[in-house]
């Protein structure tokens, strides 16, 4: 940071200027030398202080509710546990056990599998829906109305939307009895429920909207004259889509991807219910450990999951500069 330059570039100086006198007094009260500071430098200083003060509430909230808990989790991950208590310690046992068990690798692999497949489906569906809303629906009124329609399922709880699949997909459920009555199948399909299929179905159902919203948002910002220009230049519909729309939608896709990937990787309840407790992902490992009072081991798993997810997001951000979007 260059000295003298405003610490934070205020778009409007208004909020800080009211506070300036009092704050400057405080800031320069003690060191006498400071009294000779030039006016511009004074202004910069007050900007500096005001900037910190303005950032303070959010920083404090983040520190207390985000940084501190994570630090706690990291600390506890080195603790030891007996059957019913945990004790402070510094040991690598939890990590050693985690990395020493092939279950961990299988479960992480499974988690990635769920995330990747869910991502592919939500992207495909989300992009199509957003494209339809943004380019095919002409009036803003209809766009808003149809968009709100997409959000209606979100009026009920996540869990209810998920659990309602169970009777639908069951052995004697609606799906199977319909297929049987149509003569498509003779015997109920067992894999409809309590399988990877049902887990991914529930994930896609739950999280597609997280893809639709950011993609729709970016699409709405695309300058329509670009599409016209592409068309004038003789581009076909697919060419326009591939060379104009998709590149310009990338930030939205990326934001949606981050939402979906983090949600799926952190989930445990969907996997538990939809697989009938038969499959595991990392979230379930953690929840099982918590249930059995093995907090240190749960923390260690959580730390590794956090690092993994951050790495995934880090890689994703290499592809696209989402700051353009924000």
């Amino acid at each position: 940071m260059t000295p003298g330059a405003p610490a934070i570039p205020f778009r409007a100086g208004a909020p800080s200027s009211n506070e300036t006198p009092a704050m400057t007094d405080q800031a320069i009260a003690k060191p006498a030398v400071r009294t000779r500071v030039s006016a511009s430098r004074l202004g910069a200083l007050s900007h500096h202080a005001a900037g910190w003060l303005l950032a303070a509430p959010l920083a404090l909230v983040l520190a207390v509710f985000l940084v501190l808990p994570i630090v706690m989790i990291v600390i506890v991950s080195f603790w030891g546990a007996t059957e019913f208590s945990i004790y402070p310690d510094f040991q690598w046992d939890n990590y050693r056990f985690l990395f020493g068990s092939d279950v961990t690798y299988r479960v992480f692999l499974n988690t990635f599998k769920y995330a990747a497949i869910t991502w592919a489906f939500t992207l495909l569906i989300g992009f199509t829906v957003a494209y339809f809303l943004a380019f095919h629906v002409r009036t803003l009124g209809w766009q808003v109305a149809l968009f709100l329609l997409c959000t209606i399922p979100f009026w009920t709880s996540n869990i209810i939307r998920m659990i309602s699949w169970i009777p639908f997909l069951g052995r004697n459920g609606l799906a199977n009895s319909t297929l049987i009555s149509w003569g498509v199948i003779d015997e109920p399909l067992e894999w409809l429920l309590f399988s990877d299929f049902s887990v991914i179905l529930a994930f896609v159902h739950l999280y597609t909207l997280f893809m639709v919203v950011p993609i729709f948002n970016t699409m709405m910002r695309i300058d329509r004259s670009l599409i016209e220009a592409a068309s004038d230049a003789g581009a076909s519909g697919w060419q326009t889509l591939w060379h104009v729309v998709i590149p310009l939608t990338k930030p939205g896709i990326m934001i949606g991807t981050i939402f979906v990937v983090t949600l799926v990787m952190g989930d445990f309840i969907t996997v538990r219910f939809m697989s009938g407790s038969q499959s595991a992902n990392v979230g379930r490992l953690i929840s099982n450990d918590i249930g059995l009072l093995q907090y240190p081991s749960a923390s260690a798993t959580a730390v590794i999951l956090l690092i993994t997810v951050l790495m995934v997001i880090g890689i994703l951000l290499r592809f696209v500069d989402i700051r353009k979007e924000l």
């Binding site: 056990f97 068990s101 279950v103 299988r106 479960v107 499974n110 038969q278 499959s279 490992l285 093995q294």
Partner: peptide, 15 residues
């Protein structure tokens, strides 16, 4: 051997 059993149980669920 509860702790050992619990770990094996977790493996059973994940298997």
């Amino acid at each position: 051997e509860n702790q050992y059993m619990v770990r094996k149980w977790n493996e059973f669920i994940a298997a």
